[in-house]
Amino acid sequence: MIKIEDIFIVDDEPSLQIFYKQILTFNGFKVAGIANNGIEAISMFKLFPNKPKIILMDQRMPEMSGIEASKIILQMDNRVKIIFITADTSVKEEALSIGAFLFIDKIFTIAELIDAINRAIESYVL
C-alpha cells in the first residue's frame, strides 16, 4: 500500500505551493517535499531516502522546466507517477511521451486534483 507522504510538489509559485500542501493534507496525503524549480526537484529527489511515488510537476519554472526535470527523474525511477499541472498545454503531448502519468490543465478544482492522485495510486495497486 502506498504511503501518503509519497507526494512531491514541484512548482515555483509560492501561493500554489501553500495551497497544494493544504489540499493534500486536507485529503489525507502527506507532502514529501516542495521544490521551486527543476534543478531543485532533481537534487531533492536524489536525496529522498524513500522515493516519493507521485510528483505534482509544474512545467514553466526558472532554471529548469518540468519536462527536462521529469526526463532525469524518470531515468532515476521509472515507476514514479508524474502528474503535470500546467497552463502550458503545448507540452502535453511531449510530457506524456516521456512517461508522465497524467496531464492536468490549470485551472483545475480540488476534486480534479484528488481524482488524478487517486488514479495514480490505483495504478500502483493494479
Binding site: 509559485e13 500554489l16 497544494y20 493544504q22 497552463a87 490549470k106 485551472i107 483545475f108 478544482t109
Partner: peptide
C-alpha cells in the same frame, strides 16, 4: 501563465 497561476491560486484558496 501568470494569470493562470493567479486564478488557480484564488480558486484553490477559496475551495480550501
Amino acid at each position: 501563465h501568470d494569470i493562470n497561476n493567479i486564478l488557480q491560486s484564488i480558486l484553490s484558496g477559496m475551495q480550501i
